[in-house]
C-alpha cells in the first residue's frame, strides 16, 4: 500500500475512533425525529426487536459508559474491516 493511502487510513480511523469514544458522552439522548414522531402519534411506540442483538443500543449490558465506548470502538473497527474487505473483493479491474 502506498504511504499516502496508509496515512489516509490511519488518519481517517483516528478521526472515526475519536468520534466513537466521545459519542457516549456528547451524544444527545433525546429521541430522534422518527422516535419523537412515534411518541406523539402512536398509542404504544415501544416495540420489541425481532432478534436479540448482542450489543443493544450500542451498549454492553452491565458495563455503563465504558461498555458504550467499547461497543462503538469495536463497531467502528468492524465496519472498517468489512467495508475494506467488500470493496477490495468487488473492485474494478480484477
Amino acid at each position: 500500500m502506498k504511504s499516502r493511502d496508509k496515512k489516509l487510513l490511519i488518519g481517517g480511523v483516528i478521526i472515526a475512533l475519536i468520534i466513537a469514544v466521545l459519542a457516549p458522552f456528547l451524544a444527545s439522548s433525546n429521541p430522534d425525529g422518527l422516535e419523537s414522531t412515534a411518541e406523539k402519534v402512536m398509542p404504544n411506540p415501544e416495540t420489541e426487536p425481532a432478534i436479540e442483538s448482542p450489543l443493544p443500543d450500542y451498549t454492553i449490558p452491565g458495563f455503563g459508559k465504558e461498555g458504550e465506548v467499547l461497543a462503538l470502538v469495536v463497531g467502528t473497527i468492524v465496519v472498517l474491516i468489512i467495508a475494506y474487505g467488500i470493496s477490495a473483493a468487488l473492485k474494478a479491474g480484477k
Binding site: M1, K6, L8, A16, I19, L26, I81, I82, Y84
Partner: peptide
Amino acid sequence: IPLFAVLAAGIFAIQAMNVP
C-alpha cells in the same frame, strides 16, 4: 478502497453522535 473503508467507519461512528 482506503477512502471507501474509512468513510464507512466514520459514518458508522458519526451516526451514534446524536445532536439535540
